[in-house]
């Protein structure tokens, strides 16, 4: 188990290989479907003009994401009525939905670690080589356990996206994950898909 502190330097990323277990410590954000679309539309492709607190949130996110991590997660949060937020359950959501956006978002913000489940596709793998970055696989459904690594909820942006879709800024300690896509073109997901396809073809022929 390799301990990694956020923000992450390039040489640390380059040393990580598919199959490595890591534990992350530091400040990261959650971001999933609505957040990725918002980032791309407003700041990367600029197909819509910033409105409301968009510009302010963008400035707040930049330093956290520079060398940082984004977690595909829609948590269960306590303290919604008081503002004294804490994470009750916080496992990863399926990452592949962010495939159209993720590579560009990584490039734009210099994101080094994308955390989620189920793996991502060729565009993200290419961004992992270029930025460089890694895809970290957390254990899907292990929500109560992972929530324990969240020490503190520092703040929340875009709560109007809804609790699962908001940008939660969290301070984590020893957040557990496995490298399943690295900065050298390696992907567990490509490997497993290739070998399972060969098995499937055999089973369809039998």
């Amino acid at each position: 188990m390799q301990k990694i502190t956020l923000p992450i330097k390039d040489d640390v990323i380059r040393a990580l290989k598919v199959g490595d277990s890591v534990s992350l410590t530091g400040v990261m954000i959650t971001g999933r479907d609505a957040v990725h679309k918002w980032m791309i539309d407003t700041f990367v492709k600029k197909s819509r003009k910033p409105a409301g607190d968009d510009a302010e949130v963008y400035e707040a996110l930049k330093p956290i994401l520079d060398g940082g991590a984004i977690y595909h997660c829609g948590p269960v949060v306590a303290g919604l009525d008081t503002g004294a937020y804490s994470f009750v359950a916080a496992g990863p959501t399926t990452s592949i939905r962010e495939e159209p956006y993720q590579g560009d978002v990584m490039q734009h913000f210099n994101i080094k670690a994308v955390i989620g489940k189920g793996g991502m596709g060729p565009k993200t793998l290419e961004a992992c080589s270029d930025v460089p970055g890694v895809y970290l696989h957390a254990i899907g459904g292990a929500a109560s356990l992972i929530a324990q690594s969240v020490q503190q909820v520092l703040t929340v942006h875009k709560l109007d996206f809804g609790v699962p879709e908001a940008i939660w800024v969290i301070d984590v300690k020893d957040f557990p994950a496995v490298v399943t896509m690295d900065s050298h073109g390696g992907s567990v997901h490509v490997e497993v898909e290739t070998q399972s396809k060969a098995q499937l073809d055999k089973l369809l022929a039998s």
Binding site: A89, G91, A143, S144, A147
Partner: peptide, 11 residues
């Protein structure tokens, strides 16, 4: 999750 009565999965 059983011990703490918290959701097994956040979804």
């Amino acid at each position: 999750a059983r011990k703490n009565s918290t959701p097994i999965c956040q979804d």
